[in-house]
Design a protein around this nucleic acid. Structure first.
Lengths: 228, 228
DNA sequence: TGCAGAAGGTGATTAAAGTCACATTTCAGC
DNA sequence: GCTGAAATGTGACTTTAATCACCTTCTGCA
């Protein structure tokens, strides 16, 4: 892989978008290219965490299994995103698993490599700090949603989170099954179904062949802000 | 303030415990000593975040108000803890407020100062990364608790989290009112009261003059692991 | 093209916890 | 010690969403 290819991949939304030539070159030099097919686990909960991944293509789901078996989807990651920093940095176990939901490739960076890169390029540390700040914000917003809102507004929030910004026809970034949506928004499959049906009747979303499409973005945002 | 005083304060559990002389000296030189009385806000939700705090003494509550008014207590901080890194690092607004729950002092470090310190001492960046990794783990475990457990096990977890390790008589680190415990564990004051009464009858905790004491630590841990 | 298994749809029931209302206790400050 | 405010205790009721049970509809693929 060449530096400009990597640069192009990271160019979009990634916090690594502003890496300079030398940084990119080192990432490539010290990183290890890995490929996964749909369903593969990029990271497994409970494992020791000795490397970090930068997603290059594909999509992956970050989820954890609580000790009572409940599956909790924490996030979906796309190209440019960093995964697995936590365990790498604090030396603990992997808190969550990351599973490819389509063919996926990534750059894997070991602890030693990362330490070298951090030592050599001081902007990398700042970038990583920002990645983590973002993750904490996202976790806090998840907690806020779980604690303060009932299922309706909560589902609305998660749908909005999955919605593409320059939304072509309100299509979502990912076509999730209703069970998966449930694991993401923290509600039962049945309840998701009922909520979606209700919104579908109200013209807020369309559910066609399993795929959800947001019709009335403004209304959904309004629901997401609702007092309950 | 002298470097060895700071060193002593940070010695205990802080991730800054292993700072060397030069690092401590710079923290003191570039930091600004601040004092708060009970009830003061060290950090206010919604403000721009241009500094970070290292708690030197006292205790503080990190909480956020959701857009519908619900108060969510995210954590309690004690000496040695870092507060307010997120907004400082990503340049966004303060996600949460931090309120002194007793007279409290801290070292305040501006963005410029932090950047200088990070540039000068590379270990500081790693330390900060670890602080944040820890925070993400804690947020994830909060999400896990909220999603996967019913109120009983959840309250048990929060009580355990508040319990002192070398527990003298099972006393908690902080004496929280039942409403505060509710805001922390995500349940209503009334429900906290009922749960505590039930456990008190069962000899698991003692509730004496408002203060909770853990009598049967093992049992409480067992409840915290329960399937529901 | 037919079949198995996954995904979606829907009613009835149940369980968990919030809310409301009010009594009682505790406690800090005068 | 008195007093008002805050904190606690408790019963009755309501709400929300999970669970259960079952049926229907897709969809991939042999």
């Amino acid at each position: 892989m060449k530096a400009d290819e990597l640069a192009e991949i990271l160019a979009d939304h990634s916090l690594f978008a502003d890496c300079d030539e030398a940084e990119l070159a080192d990432l490539i030099l010290r990183g290890h290219f890995v490929q996964y097919k749909k369903g593969d686990e990029l990271i497994m909960q409970g494992d020791p965490g000795n490397s970090l991944l930068i997603l290059l293509s594909g999509n992956a789901r970050t989820s954890m299994i609580a000790s009572n078996g409940t599956e909790i989807v924490l996030d979906y990651a796309e190209a440019g995103q960093v995964l697995g920093e936590i365990a790498l940095l604090d030396g603990g176990e992997r808190t969550a698993s990351v599973t490819a939901i389509e063919p996926t490739s990534a750059l894997s960076i070991t602890r030693d490599a990362l330490e070298d890169i951090l030592a050599k390029h001081k902007n990398m540390a700042l970038r990583l700090l920002k990645v983590m700040a973002k993750r904490i914000r996202s976790a806090n917003s998840m907690i806020e949603g779980d604690r303060a809102y009932t299922s309706g507004p909560r589902l609305a929030r998660y749908l909005l989170r999955l919605s593409v910004v320059g939304a072509e026809e309100g299509r979502l970034k990912l076509d999730l099954s209703q069970s998966e949506l449930g694991n993401f928004a923290g509600m039962s499959r049945e309840h998701i179904n009922r909520q979606l049906s209700a919104w579908s009747d109200g013209g807020i979303v369309a559910v066609e062949s399993g795929k959800v499409r947001i019709l009335d973005h403004a209304m959904l945002s309004h629901i997401a802000e609702a007092d309950s």
